[in-house]
C-alpha cells in the first residue's frame, strides 16, 4: 500500500510548484496508473515515493513505513524502475542482478528460480554474462525490470516502464503487472499510453500542474466526462488537462 497525505514539492525556492497538496492511497493488489502531461508532476511524485526527492510538506508511507523517518524499511519492500535505464554499464547483467539480490537479501534458491524465469521472459539469457554496455536500450530496460522483480517486492514503482520495449516484451510486462498484483502486491506506474492505462489499471489518477484532477476506476472517470456515449480515457485526459 502507498499513502500520500497532503504532499507538496516545489523547485526554485517555491517559485515552481511541481506537486501541490497531493493526497492519494494505492491499495494492496491494485495496479494504479498515473497520468499527466509533460511536467505535470508525475516523475516528481514517483521520486518522492521512492525517496529520491524529499517533499516540502506532507507525508508518504509505503506499507505503513514512513518514507522520511523509516526510509530503510520502506525501501526494503519497494523496488523502482526509472524512466531511463541508467544502470551500471561496466557490470554484466548477471553481476547486476547478483548485486540487487545481495542488497535486498534474496536467498540463493529464490534468486536462481526468479532470475532464470525472468531471463527467459525477457530473452536476456543468452547475453546475461555480457557487460550491460553491450545491451540495446530495450535490453537495458529489461535488465532494470528484472532487477526490480528479483526481490519480489510488496510495492513496485515504475516510471514509464513500457517505453523502449518491443511489443512482445511490453505484453509480457503487462502480464507480469497483473500477476504481481493478483498476489496482493501493489503497483504504481506512470504512463503516456492511454490504451495501456485504460485496459490494465484498476484505478487511474490524472495529475495536472501538480494537482490530482481526477482519480478513480475507469467507470468513475467516464462519469466525469461530458462526451455523449461515454468518453475514452484520452478524451477525459484532454478535457481535464485543458487540451
Amino acid at each position: 500500500m502507498i499513502t500520500l497525505e497532503n504532499v507538496s514539492k516545489s523547485y526554485n525556492r517555491g517559485r515552481v510548484r511541481a506537486v501541490d497538496d497531493l493526497t492519494l492511497t494505492v491499495r494492496p493488489g491494485e495496479i494504479f496508473g498515473f497520468l499527466g502531461p509533460n511536467g505535470a508532476g508525475k516523475t516528481t511524485t514517483i521520486k518522492m515515493i521512492v525517496g529520491l526527492l524529499r517533499p516540502d510538506a506532507g507525508r508518504i508511507a509505503v506499507e505503513g513505513f514512513d518514507v522520511a523517518s523509516d526510509g530503510l524499511r520502506a525501501k526494503q519492500v519497494t523496488t523502482y524502475v526509472p524512466d531511463t535505464p541508467a544502470v551500471y554499464e561496466r557490470l554484466t547483467g548477471l553481476e547486476y542482478l547478483n548485486f540487487i539480490g545481495d542488497v535486498y537479501g534474496v536467498p540463493r534458491e529464490a534468486r536462481l528460480e526468479r532470475i532464470g524465469a525472468w531471463l527467459e521472459v525477457f530473452e536476456l539469457a543468452p547475453v546475461i554474462t555480457n557487460p550491460i554496455q553491450s545491451y540495446s536500450h530495450g535490453m537495458k530496460q529489461k535488465i532494470v525490470l528484472a532487477g526490480a522483480l528479483l526481490p519480489a517486492p510488496r510495492v513496485m514503482v515504475l516510471d514509464e516502464p513500457l517505453v523502449g520495449l518491443d511489443p512482445r516484451a511490453a505484453f509480457q510486462i503487462k502480464e507480469m503487472f497483473r500477476a504481481h498484483c493478483d498476489a496482493g502486491r501493489t503497483l504504481f506506474f506512470s504512463t503516456h499510453i492511454m490504451e495501456v492505462a485504460e485496459k490494465l489499471c484498476d484505478r487511474i489518477g490524472i495529475i495536472h500542474k501538480g494537482r490530482l484532477v481526477a482519480c478513480g476506476t475507469m467507470p468513475e472517470l467516464k462519469a466525469l466526462g461530458r462526451t455523449e456515449g461515454g468518453p475514452s480515457l484520452e478524451e477525459i485526459f484532454l478535457e481535464l488537462t485543458g487540451r
Binding site: V103, P107, R108, N130
Partner: peptide, 25 residues
C-alpha cells in the same frame, strides 16, 4: 562485442552469490 551464450542451471547456480553482506556487495 558480446558473445551470446546461455548458462546452464548449474553454471548459473555457481555464479550466483548469496548471503553476501550489503557492504561487501
Amino acid at each position: 562485442a558480446g558473445r551470446r551464450r546461455r548458462l546452464s542451471r548449474d553454471e548459473m547456480s555457481r555464479r550466483l552469490t548469496s548471503g553476501r553482506r550489503a557492504r561487501a556487495a
